[in-house]
Design a binder for these strands. Structure first.
Ligand code: SF4
Ligand code: SF4
Lengths: 162, 162
DNA sequence: ATTATCGGCACTACTTGAGTGCGGATTGAT
DNA sequence: ATCAATCCGCACTCAAGTAGTGCCGATAAT
């Protein structure tokens, strides 16, 4: 199901918090103190972010975490990628078929492989061009990608017939 | 992890096959005959598509399935929605908070809820405006969304600094 | 009657995700 | 030197979702 993991969401929350205190070293306790996130899990996530070099850690008494780059230069894509790997959409990566991992039997004759890779790229591109800063701003102006009519509950196609 | 289920992929493959024989009634056996998909699973998926009124079924000896609408008017969004529910991105739906399901403790003060809903809408919008027909065309021209540098292994952000 | 097809229910095995436990290492304050 | 606050690392349990299967009944053409 097309959904982010909770770890990623917690990571994003933590990062927005760090973004607000840009430059400062913030202990994990403070974050877990403000948001009802399982502390232990939060630590785990921050560790992952640290391993991915998105935040820097300082140990010891007055230790904590800090963004390694300003929030404007941190992309959602990087964060997601660090916490749960890049989006895949299809079960077979976009790896050059014929080599390596035969994750799917259909692969050689799959009619939807290539189109799905395109969709993945679009999603991925969107995430790479979305900065943490724009996430942190509570009510940002909303810059639509294309014509953006509100879409919610009921599903009825509205495709431009070519 | 941001990925479609295999059921959905199988459904898409089946639908592209039906699209090629638009108007005809095609038995599930034929599809499972062309693609190495577990037959039994394929049947399950087609059943779901039938329940969602995306395909019509005919029972009996010369029975089978047929698209209920031309492929140009069938959106990827509808298909995904029928097979695994609409994309959610965040664990909490976009349901009006304060009511109903408290799927997440952070909900009331979550700083990323609203931004994630926006992203979900963009993805959703993309899927709603992508027709089955465009998926079925084997090698379509590839229309990039923006500057599309290949993104794979290593992730380095490339955000336009505003 | 026979055969090919869909329909429905329920079931198992596997993978992933959420969340936890515990002890150790580092650093600053006393 | 001691203590307290913090990060670090590994491994573990439990729940949920996904992949895939079995079986038999209902329809309808021949
Ligand atoms: S080959 Fe086709 S079906 Fe198999 S995983 Fe890739 S896209 Fe999905
Ligand atoms: S409230 Fe925030 S953290 Fe909880 S699910 Fe919704 S978006 Fe994710």
């Amino acid at each position: 199901m097309l959904k982010l993991t909770k770890r990623t969401e917690y990571g994003l929350i933590a990062l927005t918090h760090l973004a607000q205190r840009q430059g400062e070293v913030v202990p994990a306790r403070e974050i877990g103190d403000r948001y009802p996130i399982p502390r232990r899990l939060l630590a785990e996530v921050l560790k992952d972010l640290c391993n991915a070099d998105l935040v820097a850690s300082t140990r010891g008494a007055h230790g904590g975490y800090a963004l390694v780059r300003p929030a404007q230069e941190l992309s959602l894509g990087e964060i997601v990628s660090a916490l749960e790997g890049a989006p895949t959409v299809s079960s077979c990566g976009d790896g050059d078929l014929l080599h390596g991992e035969h994750s799917c039997d259909v692969q050689s004759i799959c009619p939807i492989r290539s189109p799905l890779v395109e969709i993945k790229d679009k999603i991925w591109q969107m995430m790479l061009t979305t900065s943490l800063a724009s996430l942190a701003q509570p009510h940002k102006p909303y810059r639509p990608l294309a014509s953006q009519t509100q879409v919610n509950g009921s599903v009825k196609s509205s495709i431009e017939s070519p």
